[in-house]
């Protein structure tokens, strides 16, 4: 499967899973809202341009917003994490050759600890901005902070499950060509 097709399929799957599974399951607790769709941005290939990332981030958030009827609510955090992603990768990956040798960020290409840091930071940023925007309408600072923390924890668990379910172990790119 080419990179383009794979990412288009991922885009559609992530949106459908978020809308029809995660948003539909009975809420575990009013402080816990599971989110997974933003993993699409985290999984985009290394060589995606920064501008393309921003456009894709906006499109992803906008598609979800079309289902929930809250335009802008999910687009804003997605654009932010799409903007932060290259900086974070550069920070966690001083070695140039990884970007050349591997297709996309994963526990295999980055190493377990840096990948975990990468996912945790971006998940937390996404949730904080999302719940902050929601809190602007409903209020409650402590409520918003606690909600971000708990939801981040649950989302990280979901990311872990997704990583285990879908093995993204890649050979070196040189071997694939």
């Amino acid at each position: 499967m080419s990179t383009l097709v794979r990412n288009i399929v991922r885009f559609i799957l992530f949106i459908l899973v978020q809308v029809f599974v995660l948003n539909q399951i009975p809420p575990l607790h009013h402080l816990v809202v599971p989110y997974l769709y933003f993993l699409f941005i985290l999984w985009l290939p290394f060589k995606t341009g920064r501008r393309t990332l921003l456009v894709l981030g906006f499109l992803l958030g906008f598609s979800l917003d079309a289902f929930t009827g809250t335009f802008g609510l999910h687009s804003a955090p997605c654009v932010v994490i799409a903007y932060l992603r290259p900086f974070l990768i550069k920070l966690l990956l001083p070695r140039e050759e990884v970007e050349v040798n591997f297709r996309e960020p994963s526990a295999w290409s980055l190493g377990v600890a840096p990948y975990l840091t990468y996912v945790t930071i971006l998940t937390f940023v996404h949730h904080t901005i999302l719940f902050f925007l929601q809190a602007l309408q409903t209020g409650g600072l402590v409520y918003f902070l606690v909600k971000s923390l708990f939801s981040t924890a649950v989302s990280l668990l979901l990311v872990l499950l997704t990583e285990l379910l879908f093995n993204r172990k890649q050979g070196l790119k040189v071997n694939l060509v």
Partner: peptide, 29 residues
């Protein structure tokens, strides 16, 4: 700073959508 401007543009667009159209009476659903 072109990338940064694109970022600001998309963020601004999202926030404008959010604050302008999410009042229930003029929701652009």
């Amino acid at each position: 700073y072109f990338t940064f401007f694109i970022f600001i543009f998309f963020l601004g667009l999202s926030l404008a959508l959010l604050f302008k159209y999410n009042k229930y009476h003029n929701a652009v659903y």
